[in-house]
Nucleic acid binder design. Structure first.
Length: 283
DNA sequence: ATATGGCCCTGGTTGC
DNA sequence: TGCAACCAGGGCCATA
């Protein structure tokens, strides 16, 4: 499942390939609307626009769009985008840059033909992904609801979890608190911080929270360096797999010995999510 | 306000 | 071997 490191990897890859390009034609599958913005409105908004940049916020990929169908491009409002195309990959979403003649994968829901001849494709078998178009002349620029785990300060981080009764694992998954952490990195960061996933957020000591914040930052940065975790079918913009799954300490390792103490990793369910931890290393 | 649980979806795995 | 039931899970919504 794409989380912050996977989304960051994809956004960087897509940015390198389509930055400065222009959307010529847009096709959406006729399947049930899996979108936040109706397909017809998205197509109308996207066609003719220049892609200024592509970046990540939370688990969202944001394409900053400038210029309009009738001509004026990067000139008059350099840096200022007139619209945004926001992609959330959900569980199984992929955003790929391909040649137009590349075979169209099953469950392809969007194809953006670019002036360079390439295509930007959105593929999503399970359809948990979401596509949104924003006209910035009428609405505010998109921003993730919670704090970015790579930017959040110690004080801010502590405040997010203060006074909350829910399990720390559930809190880490709440995108309104932190945006970008999913099941893999919640488990991995709790392991590295030595904290049991069922501990109440509000009962964690200040020092534990700071350990967790640092562990989370390290895990996420390390995962980004390795191109993310390919556990199910995640691939980057080129279709290449990541390597961080090889470094997982607990995620999907139930029954296997802990890399630190050899105790067998356990699997429980917290907040409806499979949760993995070492009963000895985590307290 | 905060927290919980059901729901959406399909592909892979499990069970008979 | 073959088919059906089951499960995974991010975010959204209704409910307590």
């Amino acid at each position: 499942m794409p989380e912050l490191p996977e989304v960051e990897t994809i956004a960087r890859g897509v940015n390198e390939r389509v930055r400065g390009d222009r959307i010529v034609e847009v096709w959406f599958s006729r399947h049930r609307e899996p979108f936040k913005t109706p397909a017809t409105r998205q197509a109308r908004g996207l066609e003719g626009r220049a892609i200024l940049a592509v970046h990540r916020t939370g688990k969202h990929i944001v394409c900053e769009l400038g210029g309009s169908a009738d001509g004026s491009l990067l000139d008059e409002s350099a840096g200022k985008s007139a619209a945004q195309w926001i992609v959330h990959l959900g569980m199984t979403g992929r955003l790929l840059v391909t040649t137009p003649d590349a075979p169209v994968a099953a469950h392809t829901h969007a194809r953006l033909s670019l002036m360079s001849g390439r295509e930007l494709r959105f593929v999503d078998p399970r359809r948990f992904g979401r596509l949104e178009y924003r006209d910035l002349s009428r609405g505010a620029s998109f921003r993730a609801a919670g704090a970015d785990p790579l930017e959040v300060t110690a004080a801010e981080f502590a405040r997010l979890f203060h006074g909350r009764k829910l399990a720390i694992k559930a809190a880490l998954l709440n995108q309104k608190l932190l945006s970008g952490v999913g099941n893999i990195y919640a488990d991995e960061s709790l392991f590295r911080a030595g904290i049991r996933p069922r501990r109440q957020s509000g009962r964690l000591a200040r020092t534990e929270l700071e350990t967790l914040r640092l562990a989370l930052g390290e895990v996420l940065k390390h995962a980004i360096r390795l191109g993310g975790s390919s556990v199910s079918d995640y691939v980057d913009a080129d279709g290449a797999r990541g390597f961080f799954q090889l470094e997982h300490c607990v995620y999907l390792r139930m029954g296997l010995p802990c890399r630190i103490c050899q105790t067998l990793i356990r699997r429980i369910v917290v907040a409806g999510r499979g949760t993995h931890y070492c009963p000895r290393c985590q307290r």
